[in-house]
Computed example of a mutant assay.
Amino acid sequence: MARYTGPKTKIARKFGEAIFGDDKSFEKRNYPPGQHGNNRRRGKKSEYAVQLMEKQKAKYTYGILERQFRNMFKKATRASGITGEVLLQLCESRLDNIVYRLGVAPTRSSARQLVSHKHITVNGELVNIPSYQVKPGDVVGVREKSKSLLVIEESLQNNKSVYEWMSWNSEKKEGTLVNTPERSQIPENINEQYIVELYSK
């Protein structure tokens, strides 16, 4: 697989924020990676560099590869609404992201693994495609045989996040996507306008 499996803290330091969630190593060394770290003199970034960084940040945050991300952008441009906003909504509606947001998995990469290993159902049917687009009204749940998995139990216990656009039934271990989130409800620190400008060149 062409998925990024390298050191995550290094990527987080590159962007100057913990994009993969809580990271003690990042807190200790909150400066760019490399031999000179903070001391290296960096000139003013070009407009293109800023736009590219924003796109890379979005890709790493959601764990999406370039071709997939570009296809999502094309889909967003065809849809009605603000392109950048629609793009983030498409990212948020991915099954692996929904599983992560519901608290079933502690990170997006572990959520992707749960989906790939057939632990997750959508409307009662097993779905093992992490990029599957969940629609409002869809019920995302944990497969009956997987409900006792330790990783799922621990993640649900430690989950403190509540999102207005989804509901969770702790007894059945399933959640419903109530509606597509508005941009103001998406907590990710991404400037989607830069991504639109980059792809529009």
Score class of each variant (00 low, 15 high):
residue 1 M to N: 13
residue 2 A to I: 15
residue 2 A to V: 15
residue 6 G to W: 06
residue 8 K to M: 08
residue 9 T to H: 05
residue 12 A to H: 02
residue 15 F to Y: 15
residue 17 E to M: 15
residue 18 A to W: 11
residue 18 A to D: 14
residue 18 A to G: 14
residue 18 A to H: 12
residue 20 F to P: 11
residue 22 D to H: 14
residue 24 K to F: 13
residue 25 S to W: 11
residue 27 E to K: 15
residue 27 E to M: 15
residue 28 K to V: 14
residue 29 R to T: 05
residue 31 Y to R: 09
residue 33 P to E: 08
residue 40 R to T: 14
residue 42 R to D: 13
residue 43 G to A: 12
residue 45 K to Q: 15
residue 45 K to G: 13
residue 46 S to N: 00
residue 46 S to G: 09
residue 47 E to H: 09
residue 48 Y to N: 01
residue 48 Y to A: 01
residue 48 Y to P: 00
residue 51 Q to T: 01
residue 53 M to T: 06
residue 53 M to L: 12
residue 55 K to W: 03
residue 59 K to Y: 04
residue 59 K to E: 09
residue 59 K to C: 07
residue 68 Q to F: 02
residue 73 F to W: 03
residue 76 A to N: 03
residue 78 R to K: 14
residue 78 R to T: 10
residue 78 R to V: 06
residue 79 A to V: 08
residue 80 S to D: 13
residue 81 G to Q: 11
residue 82 I to P: 00
residue 82 I to M: 11
residue 83 T to N: 10
residue 84 G to F: 06
residue 85 E to H: 10
residue 87 L to P: 00
residue 89 Q to V: 06
residue 90 L to V: 03
residue 96 D to M: 07
residue 99 V to I: 13
residue 99 V to L: 11
residue 99 V to E: 08
residue 106 P to Y: 00
residue 110 S to P: 00
residue 112 R to N: 02
residue 112 R to L: 06
residue 114 L to D: 00
residue 114 L to S: 01
residue 116 S to F: 01
residue 121 T to F: 08
residue 122 V to E: 07
residue 123 N to Y: 04
residue 123 N to H: 05
residue 124 G to K: 07
residue 127 V to A: 00
residue 127 V to W: 03
residue 127 V to I: 13
residue 129 I to E: 09
residue 132 Y to A: 06
residue 133 Q to H: 12
residue 135 K to N: 12
residue 136 P to L: 11
residue 137 G to C: 05
residue 141 G to A: 10
residue 142 V to I: 12
residue 142 V to R: 02
residue 143 R to H: 11
residue 144 E to N: 12
residue 148 S to H: 11
residue 149 L to T: 03
residue 151 V to M: 10
residue 152 I to V: 06
residue 155 S to Q: 02
residue 156 L to D: 00
residue 159 N to W: 08
residue 161 S to C: 09
residue 165 W to N: 04
residue 166 M to I: 09
residue 173 K to L: 07
residue 177 L to R: 02
residue 177 L to N: 01
residue 182 E to Q: 10
residue 188 E to L: 06
residue 188 E to S: 05
residue 188 E to R: 04
residue 190 I to T: 01
residue 191 N to K: 12
residue 192 E to F: 04
residue 193 Q to D: 13
residue 194 Y to H: 15
residue 195 I to F: 04
residue 197 E to D: 15
residue 198 L to V: 08
residue 199 Y to W: 11
residue 200 S to H: 14
residue 200 S to T: 15
residue 201 K to W: 14
residue 201 K to C: 11
